[in-house]
Computed example of a mutant assay.
Amino acid sequence: MTDAGALSPSAPPNAASAGPADAEPRLERSGAREWRVSGDWTLLALRGRYEAFRQRIAGAMAEAPDTLWDLRGVSRLDTAGALTLWQGWGQKPPARLLWQPEHVTLFAQFMHTGAPPRPKPGLRPGLARASLSLLAFARHGVDVVALLGRLLLDVGHVLRRPSLIGWREISANVFRTGAQALPITALVGFLVGLTLSYLISKQLKTYGADIFVVNILGLAVLRELGPLLGAIIVAGRSGSAMTAQIGVMRVTQELDALSVMGISHTVRLVLPKVVALAISLPLVALWTSALMLLGGMAAAGAQLKLDPTQFLHLLPSVVEPVNLWLGWTKSVLFGGLIALLACHFGLRVKPNTESLGQSVTQSVVTAITLVIVVDAVFAVLFSNVGI
């Protein structure tokens, strides 16, 4: 027997125009614990009656949760009709349900999104970020070692065939990284030497040890500050330019063109830059050290009334030549390291401008950091040499 309420009271006045009577959505009770759903449960047929059907279905579920719902009489069902039934059921399928096979797909979309997935157990956010950073650092380390290995293999190949050496490229990089860097390194070196000598002189003057300003300034500049300051300036100036140059070649697909023509990236791009910077950086470091000593000599003359001739005469006698050679050796290593890192980050650029900017920043920061780390290692290993 059917309920007096096959639901239709709240239908709009023009419901008759929606279609024939058998197309009307119907919700009928059949027995004490069974509801039959029939007719068209579509957006057009349900217009204006969504809430009424939802309340009726929810009331039936609250009255008897184990009621059987028979959907086999539904002629048409779309997402709007399925959602109306789903919300009336309390956003979960009833315990007893009969439906047609084609209804499964419509209700499946609500079943998957009904409850949010439980978060998987994992590391805390801080540890997760730290582990990702460590993993990225390890990948960069492996890639740099691989690039260095390819570079060494290509060096052996080039030595057997000297015609492959890009002398013009090496010369151009020496000019860009060396000669063009002289003005900025001269200015920075002179000012740093001036400031350092002024501070040292102030302290030594207190104890009457004015003459030792030559010892401290000469040893610090030739052994540590000159090579380190020159490397930092070159890393920010020339290292970023190398990364940007190779990155632009990636964006404009010039690197792909070199690969198609069978030209090695390391022979054509990496090797000339590494060789050029290993040659030019020791000269830049020597130039920077000379300007730092000049600034220190000027400050010592103004603060301690130390004659420049006396300063230059004492310098070779208080600073052993091994300190100069140690500074040059570090400069060669710094130059090769900066160029290698610049090329590494340049070759990793993706073909978009955002990646180019990120790679240039990473190149400069990584190069400066590793230069300082390597300098600290040298300071520990050779702490008893020349002192």
Rank of each mutant, 00 (worst) to 15 (best):
L83A: 15
S201H: 04
T195L: 11
L340C: 11
D70P: 01
R76S: 10
P183N: 06
A95D: 15
L43V: 13
A379H: 08
P316F: 12
A367Q: 14
P20K: 14
V364I: 11
L229C: 10
G346C: 04
K330S: 12
G81D: 12
V365F: 00
L347C: 11
W86C: 05
A18Y: 11
Q253P: 00
L340T: 13
V275L: 14
E224T: 05
A209E: 09
V192L: 08
A21C: 08
D210Y: 06
A82W: 08
N173D: 14
A290Y: 08
F212G: 08
F382H: 07
Q180I: 01
I368W: 09
Y207M: 01
E169M: 05
E51L: 14
D70M: 00
M1Q: 15
E169P: 08
F345K: 09
K350V: 00
T67N: 08
D143E: 13
N352T: 04
E102S: 12
P25Q: 10
S238W: 07
P20R: 10
G19Q: 09
R237Q: 02
G122Y: 09
A179Y: 15
T309S: 07
H112F: 14
L286T: 11
L204E: 04
T195N: 10
N323C: 04
L194C: 02
R160S: 09
P282K: 14
N173T: 09
L217I: 03
A300S: 13
L370K: 05
D3V: 12
G59Y: 01
Q91D: 06
A231C: 07
G230N: 04
L196I: 07
S38R: 09
S133T: 15
G296D: 04
A179K: 05
T42E: 05
D22L: 00
P121Q: 08
V322T: 09
V371E: 14
L370F: 12
K305M: 02
P65S: 03
I170C: 12
H265C: 00
L152Q: 10
L229G: 00
V213A: 10
I200C: 04
M242C: 03
S238I: 05
L204I: 09
T252L: 13
Q91K: 13
A23Q: 12
A130S: 10
S355L: 01
V274T: 06
S38H: 01
A231F: 04
G5E: 14
A299E: 01
A130L: 11
V260Y: 09
L199S: 07
R223W: 02
S171R: 12
K205F: 06
N352F: 01
S289K: 00
P13K: 01
A339H: 00
I57W: 02
S289E: 02
T266M: 08
V380A: 15
R124Q: 14
L194Y: 14
V274G: 06
F107I: 15
W41R: 10
P121F: 03
L291Y: 04
L293K: 08
A209N: 14
W69H: 08
L293A: 00
M242N: 05
P308Y: 03
Q310H: 06
A21N: 02
K305C: 03
G189A: 09
N384W: 11
T206A: 10
L229N: 06
L191G: 03
G218R: 03
V349Q: 10
V332M: 11
A181I: 00
V360I: 15
L153C: 12
L187N: 05
L106S: 07
A45R: 03
T2Q: 07
V332N: 11
L291D: 06
A300E: 03
A6W: 15
